[in-house]
Design a protein around this nucleic acid. Structure first.
Length: 212
DNA sequence: AAAAGGTTCAACCGCGGGTGC
DNA sequence: TGCACCCGCGGTTGAACCTTT
């Protein structure tokens, strides 16, 4: 993984970190603590720039980092927070203990974004993609309230006092079976949770003043 | 078995905000 | 006010790995 080992014009090493480099960085930070990244490489005996050291520490070596697969709850939280915060990965990471902004960003781009697209949800606006849906069948649906559909996100973001809004009314009439769908099991799993996605229920512990 | 194409994710880059002088 | 420096963020890259043909 990573990049080809190389050096820049200052003789500083680039590319993947070796276990020896990791050990030097960990030992130095255990004694002196993180920070002062500019001088850290020299003091720690590393041929790296401070930026590279900070990135390695914050994204990989920090002892409080939780590695491994994201749980469904974490995934749902990411989606909810992204619907409010957008690509503010550090803000999202701050609300997911043990996860880094880089990890969340990667996970979003490689997993969640694709799943939302597959489900017919625009990953930027978090609204159903009308270009993706079979519009003719939608318009023929007597139960569909299109204005509700278009106002879905606005509703969701203004639901501070309306957490119990029942969006099932909107979502139950759609079929998000997609021509691009992959594993049936996965599709079924995520479609069954579609209602949860569309509710965008904001955890009570979330402080909107902090977010915005 | 091997080649081709797709996916993952650690690491890099450029930019902008904050701070001190 | 302007400059330099430091730090953190978001976007992008590309080698390793995985899956498909």
């Amino acid at each position: 993984m990573g990049r080809t080992p190389s050096s820049d014009k200052n003789g500083l090493k680039k590319g993947p970190w070796t276990p020896e480099e990791d050990q030097k960085l960990i030992q130095y930070i255990q004694v002196h603590g993180p920070g002062n990244w500019r001088n850290l490489p020299k003091n720690a005996g590393l041929q790296r720039c401070g930026k590279s050291c900070r990135l390695r520490w914050t994204n990989y070596l920090r002892p409080d980092i939780r590695r491994g697969r994201f749980s469904f709850e974490e995934e749902e939280t990411i989606i909810q927070l992204h619907s409010v915060l957008g690509n503010k990965w550090s803000a999202i990471a701050a609300r997911l203990p043990g996860r880094t902004d880089n990890e969340i960003k990667n996970y979003w781009n490689t997993h969640i974004r694709k799943r939302l697209l597959r489900m017919g949800i625009d990953p930027v606006t978090h609204s159903p993609r009308l270009d993706f849906l079979d519009l003719s069948s939608l318009f023929n649906s007597t139960q569909l309230n299109l204005s509700s559909l278009l106002g879905l996100q606005a509703l969701s973001l203004n639901n501070n006092n309306n957490n119990n809004i029942n969006n099932n009314q909107n979502s139950q009439n759609f079929s998000f079976d997609t021509p691009l769908s992959g594993a049936e099991e996965e599709k079924e799993s995520y479609c069954s949770n579609f209602n949860n996605f569309m509710k965008f229920e904001i955890p009570e512990s979330l402080n909107f003043d902090d977010l915005l």
